[in-house]
Design a protein around this nucleic acid. Structure first.
Lengths: 152, 152
DNA sequence: ATAATTTATGTTGTGTACAATCTAATTGTG
DNA sequence: CACAATTAGATTGTACACAACATAAATTAT
């Protein structure tokens, strides 16, 4: 039954850029885990906090567009951040369909503790900032091309 | 309360390569979805099938090492593939700790239907094979450096 | 050979992801 | 204004991902 080395090159796991991206994402997640545990955040929660540290008081929708996540993912995640007293959820008075997300004092303060994180990640990446910036741009360009196909 | 543009460059979402990778992985997943729906597979299930199409009759552990996944993820996933009659799970007689995963006839046949998938993904990526291969290598190298840090 | 350790897999609990569906609020059109 | 269409969020159900723990089989160390 055992089958040796298929000649099916396009179907070879190691030829697939998607698997490279998929497995790199998991590797990042595992490197982040111990750092974020100290902040009491998961990686997606950290991403939401990054968005809010740039600008808060924004609707759920805006966070979702920034992170490419929908309400099915964000609603429970934001409830957990609220339970941790890092954010407040308030229904907008202008447009009652919207729920605005604002940082609490505790949520603002967490930014100070988060300052050390990017440096640790850079160290784990074990390459220069320049290389990472270049690679990031290529990956973002690929992502945007993929998303463009989906939008059609 | 609303806070405008933080000067905290290291904490800017758009500066983070991890987010580029994370969001690219999701973009790939969304492009794959309609293609894999036709095969009755999810993306992680497709990865397992790729491994098995190269060589089957392998223990769960070997699949996990290939895909960087543990038993907590693979056990239920493999049970679903077994329920779909694509694989068989058999306890090894040589080493009773191991569960060997083999393709069923149906699982083997699915490879034919999967042949069209990589080409569709390449088209969605909207760039040359050469560029993708180069980018893939860089991402794999980064992933391996991250994983190396974890192994310490 | 027997105890201690390691290994392979399974189980449980928490937290994403996302499709599909639902409700309530707003907008567009005649 | 009336009312269909759209929009923002929430809910439900399925499927990863992984930590922590459990169990049984194999290995080793004595």
């Amino acid at each position: 039954m055992a089958k040796k080395y298929s000649a099916d090159f396009p179907l070879r796991l190691d030829n697939q850029i998607c698997f490279a991206v998929y497995s790199a994402a998991h590797a990042f997640n595992r490197v982040y885990k111990p750092l974020l545990d100290r902040l009491g955040l998961t990686y997606p929660q950290y991403l939401v906090m990054l968005v809010l540290w740039e600008r808060d008081g924004v609707p759920v929708k805006a966070i979702g567009e920034r992170l490419f996540l929908d309400s099915g993912t964000l609603t429970p995640l934001l409830k957990r951040l609220e339970a941790a007293e890092l954010i407040k959820r308030t229904r907008s008075t202008e447009d009652e369909r919207q729920v605005l997300i604002a940082l609490t004092a505790k949520g603002e303060q967490l930014r100070e503790k988060a300052r050390a994180v990017p440096e640790s990640i850079l160290a784990a990446s074990d390459c220069s900032v320049g290389e990472l910036v270049a690679l990031k741009s290529e990956i973002v360009a690929l992502r945007d091309r993929l998303n463009a196909v989906l939008g059609e």
